[in-house]
Design a protein around this nucleic acid. Structure first.
Lengths: 257, 257
DNA sequence: CGACCTGTTGAGGCTCATCAATAGGCGTGG
DNA sequence: CCACGCCTATTGATGAGCCTCAACAGGTCG
């Protein structure tokens, strides 16, 4: 189980702790700068700011939801649980990412689970239509965000379908490092990695035990060192070469809601 | 190799064999009906009608492209090739599906290969911006198509990460059957399946030989019968139960460009 | 008729899963 | 303060699933 003591109740903050206009996330290099009209529009979409502890479900597979969420701070995953109890992590949600888009009135096909304490901007899903009608460039930005996300998932498909254990882990960590780097959350070599063995296993499609063995291999070859909840990649090019990862493909900026 | 004799040149038809207004695809149940203004807009996006033989690359991984394509007739796949020569099929492209969307001015991360003789509507990618500005509901339809595609890929991730060989194949064929059924391309039990062993293997992340063994198992248990390029699923519920497939989730209609 | 492609089957080996047992970290409660 | 329980990492042993190599059969096409 990922969240054994996940019974804490969510805390809603009706008074926004962070106004959209002053949002510090929005200033980062990877995110495009918006016009003041666009920021106003987003302000009106925002329902509240949601604070969750680690190991809590933001969205639950099979339910419906009228909200979208932008992760403001912390880590989360998008995952799917199987009837036999297995889990597959589909994607990692990092600050600035949008989750919760579904086809109108449909069930969500995945759950979203926090890995750390995390806070989200909750947005009203019903306003998406209005966004397409009145904020075309914003809508197009969100659309491009989808395309980026799909490229990530494509890469993960290749990883699961065609790569052996150690390479999968290397590939996963390089992808995370790159995204964290864009957000200024790593010095380029080390970064926080709030995952334990089972969660890593659920992401790369292996058993927990085998993941730990692959990590030992990577450690012995000085490709990846994980101590506690902190990962170090001594040489990105070396690891990229080992795991067949194409470095630095994503130059595009994202929109943030 | 999937396309060994794939050196035939593409045939372009400057005079459109099918006008958008009379497009018979558009009339099918799964696709939403568009206003005449929207159809006009699409007409103007359309550059030409492209006819390709089987085993031909429509788009090539690593290149850039200024076009989008709607598959009009035939089958194609979206795939990624690896440095070691391996391939991973990311998704199947069926009539009405849109391929070729990329982040502005970026390289395409995958190739698109025809499995049968196929024809495409070629659309000008530069007009996408105008679509978002002037045709919001059309843009939103395309956007929802992305979400649907992502749900398919999520399912494939689970398949590759968490399922054994026979279940993977069952899952894949049920997904294809469902999409073909929506398009009226199956009687519910049998359908054309223009795939041979290696291509099936590249889709489910297994070796060709092992796929054939899994197919023997499925045949012996009367779950899937494949003869030539024709597949039969005697009992969809039985196969769905076997491979853990949730039947009939997609009620949503798609937009077609 | 032979070349080629695809399906089929067998044998052997490698990767990975599963089970099980031990050790270490951390918080809780005595 | 230590003792205890819980969770996570670690290691070994065993077996299942899958891959690779290789050989052969049947069909199609030149």
């Amino acid at each position: 189980m990922i969240g054994p003591r996940a019974k804490t109740t969510a805390r809603r903050a009706p008074a926004l702790p962070v106004g959209c206009r002053a949002c510090p996330l929005r200033r980062k290099q990877i995110f495009r700068q918006l016009s003041s009209g666009e920021v106003d529009f987003i302000s009106r979409m925002k329902r509240c700011h949601l604070q969750l502890p680690a190991g809590e479900e933001l969205l639950t597979q099979g339910r419906t939801s009228g909200s979208l969420y932008t992760l403001y701070e912390g880590w989360a995953v998008r995952l799917r649980q199987l009837p036999d109890g297995g889990r597959q992590i589909l994607d990692f949600v990092l600050p600035g990412d949008l989750v919760g888009l579904v086809q109108a009135h449909g069930e969500i096909g995945y759950s979203v689970l926090t890995l750390t304490a995390a806070s989200f901007c909750e947005l009203d899903a019903k306003t998406v239509g209005a966004m397409f009608r009145t904020q075309p460039s914003l809508a197009m930005g969100v659309f491009e965000g989808r395309i980026q996300e799909q490229e990530r998932i494509d890469a993960r498909l290749v990883m699961l379908g065609r790569m052996p254990a150690a390479e999968r882990i290397g590939h996963l960590l390089l992808g995370l490092r790159e995204r964290l780097h864009e957000r200024g959350l790593t010095d380029g070599t080390s970064f926080a990695l709030p995952l334990h063995g089972l969660q890593l296993a659920d992401a790369v499609g292996l058993s927990r035990v085998h993941v730990m063995r692959a990590l030992r291999y990577l450690r012995q070859h000085e490709l990846i060192m994980i101590r506690g909840r902190w990962a170090t990649i001594p040489s990105v090019p070396k690891l990229a070469h080992f795991s067949g990862f194409a470095v630095g493909n994503s130059r595009a900026k994202s929109y943030i809601l």
